[in-house]
Nucleic acid binder design. Structure first.
Lengths: 361, 361
DNA sequence: TGCTGTTTTTGGATTGGTCTAAATCTAGAG
DNA sequence: CTCTAGATTTAGACCAATCCAAAAACAGCA
């Protein structure tokens, strides 16, 4: 049983407008508008009078109406391809934190790595006139998408992956460096046969990892090179490692495309009766929370999703305030989190904290 | 180097309006509006003519303007308290899927369990005139918040937790039944000293679990009863289990508030030199993806976050179309996912799939 | 052809703010 | 006491759609 509303609420919506405030405070609509926007034009006594009226009448600012005449909506669109992945959860938390500080609010969409879904959402965002887009491009996104967004006059910050040629705004981890750190560490432990597991069809985030892998091997003068492509699920890791270990000269260590693949690989090793870290070192990428839960705990390249989210949000706000400034790429250095799965505990030789060159193609 | 735009795009925004379409097609603004909304009033030849003009001029529908005059914005607000938790990721994916099918789009906010942040966001949502709110209330939310939202005339669907007295719309798992399933299973395995680990300060989701725990014990006539309160982190599970196992008569099994606490508990057991599943059975709640990754794999009560998200979205749309219909509560039955951590493998006695009564206070 | 009853189409008001340029109001200088 | 620069305030157009009631077009029928 819904109880009756008290006070003046007019049945449906309160809908107190600037006009009402103006009448109540004995000033004009324009003055009230100025007060609402914190303009320094209005005199102190007037401001107080108006603010009192605003409070008294229970006024609610109508951003939709404001956006119609003004230019900004104070909204952003965020597209990720797998929100169920805790990595994106952390990233979205970072975005949310940075944006809400500035009074912005964001639409979220989960593209499920479908360019079609992604495009539908972007079109909807255009209709809602968001001030900008934070985009983790779906696998298979048309490389001209960024040009389309530019043609729309829609600021766009790419995250994690990047497409297109034009100079763009971007925030993401330095995958190249991350893989180098992993390989360097393994080499420091004495490994000479290091494989790389997984990686979607080509996109920047995959390419950077593969290049990191190849460059590292070359730098250390290692001959052994096995790069097994696949999608990026745990299932893949499980299958690939078993395939790999049955080869004539199996690797003594594997670096995995991400932690999910790494978990799968550890599972696969156990299935073969092998012990991760002892019979074959395993290193993941992302350092998700669960990395330290598994047994042995997973050594992983931490890519700091929360910080990436914050940076991306910062870039977006910057771009909105300066639409034609120079594009900026923020590439965060990852950090190797050493745990049991790479056998560091077993071979007490200290891991080298070697620096490698990062790059942004 | 940004290339010059072709065609008529006026420097900043294209901003083709209904007026332009109307002129181009030789009809009135009103007619174009009707075509856009798929009205059956307009004759077929006219419709085609207008649609051609729309395409020709590259018109973009302005939802902000439409919302100003019309009533709907086709937007919703979603508030969760920990988006980094994969449970919420899956839930948001479910919401997103159900909403995007209907052309709705949603603002997401992460309250971090702070009522202050939550309130700020809700006020912003009101200013943006969303059609409704999907709310997982933050810990410590003022119970009158729902009344406030009602007074605003803002439809609100509560998820996972619920506050307030008024009949409300709600979607969530049947925690009471879930805990009963867990306890029943343990009793079936021969356990008689079963503890419950964790749970925030009081809110519905905690209360339902505790009641489930107490009711189960009573139903099975068990004397042993240990309910350790704490927040819901892995750290808590780690600490609590060690405290518990050092008591004179430690439990032989623990049911945990959620999987995070359960992971912590398993860690704690290992720290004590004990084996989860053998020395003490552990059952979690949620059945997050990682449950089967840990060692031993975690037995857990699956609560189906994706389905809950879909249901909540469905409820929201229903409420928007019928603002004063009877409130509806959707309580999904959980399912016990048996794995190694409860020792089922060790004691081959079959688990009973006993039904218990669910309830919605 | 005139009349009536549907279909279609349309003008103009409306939504709730912001913007611009002009009006009004100070206070200090001459 | 008048004038003017600077500080406040305001009127009215404007943003891009929807809504309503009334006009126009069209058909069927006498």
């Amino acid at each position: 049983m819904t109880s009756k509303r008290r006070s003046s609420a007019t049945h449906r919506e309160s809908s107190v407008t600037l006009q009402d405030i103006a009448a109540h405070a004995g000033v004009s609509r324009s003055t009230v508008s100025l007060v609402l926007r914190g303009s320094s034009l209005v005199a102190e006594p007037t401001r107080l009078k108006v603010q009192a009226s605003i409070k008294a009448l229970g006024y609610v600012y109508n951003r939709g109406a404001a956006a119609l005449r003004g230019r900004r909506t104070s909204t952003l669109g965020v597209v990720v391809y797998d929100i169920a992945n805790p990595f994106f959860g952390a990233m979205v938390a970072g975005i949310d934190n940075a944006l809400s500080r500035e009074g912005y609010v964001s639409f979220l969409a989960n593209s499920e790595d479908s360019p079609r879904r992604q495009e539908r959402f972007l079109e909807r965002m255009r209709e809602h006139a968001v001030d900008g887009i934070l985009l983790c491009p779906a696998e298979g996104t048309d490389p001209t998408l960024i040009d389309t967004l530019n043609a729309w006059g829609m600021p766009c910050i790419q995250i994690l992956r990047h497409i297109g040629e034009t100079p763009f705004d971007y925030a993401g981890p330095d995958f190249h460096l991350g893989v180098c750190q992993a390989v360097d560490h393994l080499v420091g432990l004495g490994h000479e046969r290091i494989a790389f597991l997984g990686g979607h069809a080509e996109h920047s985030a995959t390419r950077e990892r593969w290049e990191g892998y190849c460059d590292s091997l070359a730098r250390h003068g290692l001959d052994y090179k096995r790069l097994l492509r696949a999608t990026v699920t745990r299932r893949d890791g499980f299958a690939l490692i078993q395939q790999l270990m049955s080869e004539p000269t199996p690797p003594t260590a594997v670096v995995c495309h991400n932690d999910m693949v790494a978990f799968g690989a550890m599972f696969g090793l156990k299935r073969l009766g092998l012990t991760p870290g002892t019979d074959c070192a395993v290193i993941g990428i992302d350092d998700v929370e669960e990395a330290e839960l598994v047994d042995p705990a997973l050594t992983s390249v931490a890519t700091h999703p929360y910080a990436i989210g914050e940076e991306a949000a910062r870039l977006a706000l910057r771009r909105i305030h300066d639409p034609k400034g120079a594009p900026e790429q923020v590439v965060l250095s990852p950090r190797l989190q050493v745990r049991g799965s790479c056998g560091a505990r077993l071979q007490p030789r200290t891991a080298s904290a070697q620096a490698a060159s990062g790059q942004m193609p």
